[in-house]
Design a protein around this nucleic acid. Structure first.
Lengths: 110, 110
DNA sequence: TGACTATATCATTAGTTAGTTATATAGTAT
DNA sequence: ATACTATATAACTAACTAATGATATAGTCA
């Protein structure tokens, strides 16, 4: 019954990573394929420095990983639960109406 | 393929709620039963004002709900995905060693 | 009525972090 | 070598928010 604060913070940390629209936006671009930072920036409209910072954060958290190829770094999603969530979220996001948005995190059965 | 920013923020908002150790701590006390604020404070060591604030936040987000009985308010978890997560988290938290903490959000298969 | 208890809310402070700008690093090509 | 491109990082600012202390609200009991 005793809960260790350190573990609690680890768990919260993981959720915190996903609790930012910008990062979800980045993840949605990585949903189906790996992408370079430039690619992500073009897709999302984010500044390069900002995208890099978020990617670094997510890499440290084990949510994404990157592959180095010449001058490029290709990022991809590695956390399986994030990947499945990402698919679900993207599906929900793309099917919802602009002004409706009555969605749920996991239970968007509609 | 177009993602609506408003929906993205809704989704992020939900994760943000869970991205705070204090709130996870509160949720873990509500895992198996509803509790009064005092009860939660005693279990967690949180200050009353702080607990109330987090509970308000989670209530607004639809994560918990409360029942009024006389002078007390009994809070409970309502979001089903949070409830199942809560059980899983609590299980993981209670079985992990104090200094080990090699856990994963959803895939804590070990 | 007044004393007591549970809860909510307000105001303040301190810590965190997203976004931006500028700069550094490093690979490629001429 | 220089020029160019992709990425990372550092410094800074602004916005957000958790925690706290004080106060308000409201139900109970004598």
């Amino acid at each position: 019954m005793t809960i260790h604060p350190h573990d609690l913070e680890q768990l919260a940390q993981h959720f915190k990573i996903l609790g930012e629209p910008t990062r979800l936006q980045i993840l949605s671009t990585l949903c189906n394929q790996e992408r370079s930072v430039q690619d992500i920036c073009q897709q999302t409209g984010l500044h390069q420095a900002n995208a890099s910072k978020h990617l670094r954060l997510m890499k440290d958290a084990g949510v994404v990983a990157c592959r180095k190829k010449g001058i490029w770094r290709y990022y991809r999603i590695v956390a399986p639960e994030v990947l499945s969530l990402c698919h679900r979220a993207q599906q929900a996001l793309t099917t919802s109406e602009p002004e409706k948005s009555q969605m749920e995190v996991v239970e968007e059965s509609q």
